[in-house]
Computed example of a mutant assay.
Amino acid sequence: MGAGNKTEVSVFLLLGLSEDPEIQPLLFGLFLSMYLVTVLGNLLIILAILFDPHLHTPMYFFLSNLSLVDICFTSTTIPKMLLNIQAHSKDISYIGCIAQVYFFMVFAGMDDFLLTVMAYDRYVAICHPLHYTVIMNPRLCVLLVLICWLTIFWVSLIHILLVGRLTFCPGTELPHFFCELAQILKVACSDTLINNICLYVATALLCMFPLTGILFSYSQIVSSLMRMSSTEGKYKAFSTCGSHLSVVSLFYGTSLGVYLTSAVTHSSQRSSVASVMYTVVTPMLNPFIYSLRNKDVKGALRRLSRAAASCP
């Protein structure tokens, strides 16, 4: 395949979740509603943490970053999907598709990293409570988030640079509602061996190390709780982990579900439907999990709503 063929590809075709025209209005309304709920819910969490001094702690600093990432995560894919449904189009430009792949990897990776950092924060709070404020100082918290951003920025950039060397045939169709790296590699007209190797290695490392960190943190937390004599103390300590555990279970559970669906069914349409869980549903549910299970967040949201209602 010559270099000239590469320049011919100006657009890809996103096949979406369904090609049935009668279902398109339903999909538009459903995804628009979920997107608005996601943005509003995560924005409220950010504002509550920002304006409530009681929540100016490492735990809620990381939570506000997670909410910001979730907003960006869904904004990478859903608006373009809604625009295509509204315009009765399937087109996405080559540059737009590459940008979508890049930012999707960045924000998905940041979700993973932040959940790991939050697990470490709970480990320090429960296992080393007397040294918590010294260890989890503001400088370390900011440094941890910056390291996460820099790491995922560069890892994602490497993938994009490798995609840039691939060639694609005109009229390339992607059986998905957004541009995903794995799907891009499947439809490339040139050799993708190096891309696939890098994808598998990066996926293994970026999933294995964060998940190992989370499991280690909670193994230490459980071990510490078992040594506590007070049942009330155990419950109070572990209750601070409830929301985080729920979000971790949802994130990894839906991601594993998508992987198993792809491996078992080999159906691109079923895989894209399954991916809705971790790309749309999980970011939408995170604010509800933290607001419903956390008294501090609920109190901050009530104070924020009262402050907003009292404004002229």
Score class of each variant (00 low, 15 high):
3 A>T: 03
5 N>W: 08
16 G>T: 01
17 L>N: 09
17 L>A: 00
18 S>C: 02
18 S>I: 04
18 S>D: 10
22 E>W: 06
24 Q>L: 11
24 Q>A: 14
24 Q>V: 07
25 P>H: 02
27 L>I: 11
28 F>A: 04
30 L>F: 15
32 L>V: 00
34 M>Q: 06
41 G>L: 00
51 F>C: 02
51 F>H: 11
53 P>Q: 06
55 L>G: 07
56 H>N: 15
56 H>D: 15
61 F>C: 10
64 S>P: 03
64 S>F: 01
65 N>C: 14
66 L>N: 12
66 L>Q: 13
67 S>E: 05
69 V>H: 12
69 V>I: 15
73 F>Q: 13
74 T>K: 08
75 S>E: 01
77 T>E: 06
78 I>T: 15
78 I>H: 05
80 K>Y: 09
80 K>D: 08
84 N>V: 06
96 G>M: 13
96 G>L: 03
96 G>V: 07
103 F>I: 07
103 F>P: 00
106 V>S: 08
109 G>F: 06
114 L>K: 07
116 T>V: 04
117 V>D: 14
122 R>L: 03
122 R>T: 09
127 C>V: 07
127 C>N: 07
139 R>F: 02
139 R>I: 11
146 L>C: 09
147 I>P: 05
147 I>W: 04
149 W>T: 01
150 L>W: 09
150 L>M: 13
150 L>P: 00
151 T>W: 00
152 I>H: 14
152 I>N: 10
153 F>C: 14
154 W>T: 10
157 L>P: 03
161 L>C: 08
162 L>W: 14
165 R>A: 12
173 E>S: 14
174 L>Q: 07
174 L>M: 04
175 P>A: 14
176 H>N: 11
177 F>K: 08
181 L>A: 05
182 A>F: 11
183 Q>Y: 13
185 L>T: 03
185 L>M: 12
186 K>M: 09
188 A>H: 08
188 A>Q: 02
189 C>A: 15
191 D>R: 10
195 N>Q: 14
199 L>I: 00
200 Y>C: 00
200 Y>S: 06
202 A>I: 04
204 A>P: 01
211 L>F: 13
213 G>L: 10
215 L>A: 04
217 S>N: 11
218 Y>F: 11
220 Q>T: 03
221 I>F: 01
224 S>Y: 03
224 S>R: 12
226 M>N: 09
226 M>G: 13
227 R>C: 07
227 R>Y: 07
227 R>H: 04
229 S>V: 06
229 S>D: 12
230 S>I: 04
230 S>F: 01
230 S>R: 12
234 K>I: 06
240 T>H: 05
242 G>V: 02
245 L>P: 02
251 F>L: 13
253 G>V: 02
260 L>W: 10
261 T>G: 09
263 A>Q: 05
267 S>N: 15
267 S>Q: 10
273 V>A: 14
274 A>I: 04
275 S>G: 05
276 V>H: 08
283 P>T: 06
284 M>T: 11
285 L>P: 00
286 N>V: 11
287 P>N: 05
291 S>R: 05
292 L>S: 14
292 L>M: 12
294 N>H: 05
294 N>C: 14
295 K>A: 15
299 G>P: 01
299 G>L: 03
300 A>Y: 00
304 L>C: 13
306 R>W: 13
306 R>P: 03
307 A>G: 08
309 A>L: 15
309 A>M: 14
